[in-house]
Design a protein around this nucleic acid. Sequence first.
RNA 1: GCCGGUGUAGCUCAGUCGGCAGAGCAGGUGAUUUGUAAUCACCAGGUCGUGGGUUCAAGUCCCACCGCCGGCUCCA
Length: 643
Amino acid sequence: MIEIFIEDLNQKFTFNEGITLKDILKNLNGKFKDVVGGKLNSEIVDIHTPINQSGNLKFLKKEDKESLEILRHSLAHIMAQALKEIYGDENVHLGIGPTTEHGFYYDVEIEGKRLTDEDLPQIEEKMKEIIKKGYQIERFELPREEAIKFFENKKEIYKIDIIKHNIPEGEPISLYKQGDFVDLCRGPHLPSTDKAGAFKLIYVSGAYWRGKETNPMLQRIYGVAFWSEKELKDYLNMLEEAKKRDHRKIGKDLELFLIDEEIGGGLAIWLPKGAIIRKEIEDAWKKEHLKRGYQLVYTPHVGKEQLWQTSGHLSLYQENMYPRMQIEEEGYYVKPMNCPFHVEIYKSKQRSYKELPIRLAELGTVYRYERSGALHGLMRVRGFTQDDAHIICREDQVEDEIREVLNLALNTLKSYGFDEFEVYLSTKPEKYVGDDKMWEIAENSLRKAIESTGLDYKIDEGGGAFYGPKIDVKIKDAIGRLWQCSTIQFDFNLPERFDMYYIGEDNQKHRPYMIHRAIFGSIERFIGVLLEHYAGFLPVWLSPVQVKIIPIADKHLEYAETVKQKLLENDIRVELDDRNERMNKKIRDAELQKIPFMLVVGDKEAETGTVAVREKGKQGSQTLSIDEFVSKIKEIISNKHAL
RNA sequence: GCCGGUGUAGCUCAGUCGGCAGAGCAGGUGAUUUGUAAUCACCAGGUCGUGGGUUCAAGUCCCACCGCCGGCUCCA
C-alpha cells in the first residue's frame, strides 16, 4: 500500500501500489475533467504511469507550465505516427523524440526520402488528422527480450540501441500506443491525441545519432507547441522579433562591422562606427582593471613552436590551432590563447612572495580554427579578442582574489544592463593534474565566492577541465536568451609545465596558484550580444553617434556648426546633417540610425541660442539652451544610461 | 566538416513555360529651402556566386565547387 497526499483535495489517500492517475481520477467521479497529468513529488507523471511510491501528488492542468512537457511529448509521438503514415511504417526508423524549451523534435531516418521545409505542411496536416481522430493513448510494459524482439520486427534499430545501452537490465520497459502506432517511451503522455494543443513544425535539419559525428546522420524535425493558439502565435512573433534583433543585420544597417568572404569567414572587420563601440568598451575595461590592481600588457600574435610544446597546447589543443608556419628553420604558431605569454612575463624575473598577487591583463586577440559550419556573425568567429587576465598568487590569497574577480565580473556585466545571471561551478573531473589539496582549496574558494554574491548556482560535478575547476557566468538578454560570458578558471597545469615559482618568506621556491579569467569572454561576441539585447539601441555612452544636428534649411547651417563645435569641445560624438533634404527626412534617417539625440535648429533656435531636443523614439521636442543640453547628455553618458 | 535551404545592382527584393535583366532604397546631378519619421526630376549602377554541361537560346534546367542561412558537432 502507498500513501498519496493529493494537494488539490488537501487530503491523504491510501492506494494499492501501481495505481494510476487515471484510476484515481475515476474514483473522483470525473470531478477533475481537465487534468492532463500530475506531479508526484518532483516528477511529472501522466495518467497512465503506475504509481509505486508514496508522496505528494498535484494535478496538472493546462494552466500549469509543467503540463506542457506532456503535451510536447505526445506531439512528438503524433508527428512520428504521421511520418509513418505518410512514408510507410517500414521506411521510417525512429531515433529520439524529446521535448525542448519551446516544443519538441524527433530524430528519424526515412528510407528513400530527404525532407525539406516544403514537406512540413503535409506532415502538419497528417498530425491534425491524428489529433482529430482522438486515439486513446495507452501505456504498457514488455520484458526486455520481448521489447527487443518487438522492435527488431519493426526494424527500429535505434530503439533497440536505446534499450540495450540506455535502459539498465531489470528496469521495466514501457511503451505507448495510440492507434496502430507504438513507440518506446518513458512518457509522460496525454490521455488521448485529441487533447493536443497548438503546434507548428518549424524546420528540418540533420542531427547525428546520439550527437556523434561518426554515427549516421538522422533528420531532425523540430516543432514548437503550446496549449493555445495565442501562446503559439506569441512565440512565433518572438522569433520574428529575435530575427529583427539579429546583430548581423544591425551591424550591416548601422555600418558597425563587416564579415566578408573576400577576407575570410569568421574574420570580423570593425568599421569606424563599430570601432567606437569597441573602443568605449575597451577603455572602460582598462580603466576598471587598472583601478583594481591589474597591470596591462601586450603580447605578440605568434610564438615559437617550443613555447606551445611547453604549454601543452600542441599536444592538447592542436586541432583548434592553425597550422605551423616556418620562419628561418623555426616553427611558429598563431596563438589560440594568451596564457603562455603571460607566464613568460611572470617568469621574466625572479618573483618574491611580497610581489604577489600579480594580475596581468590584456585584450589579446587569439585565433582558433572553427569549422565553417559553426561560424555565426560575431558570436562565433575564427579570430577574437579575449578580455583576458591571469592572476598569479599565493595560497593565502586565492579566496580574496576569486571573490574580487567574481565581483568585478558581475558589476561589469550589470553596468551594461544585464541583471540576470546563471552561474555554474565545475569541479574535478576523473582525469586531472595537480594535487587534491590544491583542487580542494580552489573549489572551496570558488564556491565561497559564489555564495558571497547570494546568487543561485548550479554545480557541474566533474565538469571542470583537467587542469582546474572553474566558474562560468551566463547572462540573460532582453528576450530571455542565455549567453556565456565570464569564466574564472584555475590552472594547475601551466605553473607546473613552465616551472613557475616565487621565493617565499622561508627563502624556498614555491609554486604559485594561477587563475585564468575573462569578463566578456570575447569582445566581438559581447558586442554581438549587446546589439541583440538592445536591438541596436545602445546606451548613449556606447552610441557611435550620440547627437545628430538637423538644420531646418541651409540658412541655419552656420548656427548648426557652432552647436556642433560646442558639443565637440565637450567630447560628445556629433554629426551635422547638412544634406539638402527636408527636416522630416533627416529625422527619419537619424531614427533609422538609432541615434539617441536629434537637435533640430531653425530660426527660433538660432535667435535664442537654443536647440530643439528630440529623443530617439519619442515624438515632439524639448527646447534647451546649448549648455543645458550639454550637461544633460554628459550626465546620461557618465551614468551609462540607455534612453 | 555533416544534413537541409539559399545566392539577381551597395541594400531589400521581383523576374511567368527556357526567349532582349527589373523595382524601391542608397549613390551622382539639378530643382526646391522646408518645423519633428521619406520633396521632385533626371542619371548612373549587373560576368544573375564561380566553373562546367544540356539547348537554336540558360538568371531560369543538370553537375561540381564556393559563400551565406537554419541545425548537428564544438565553443569565447
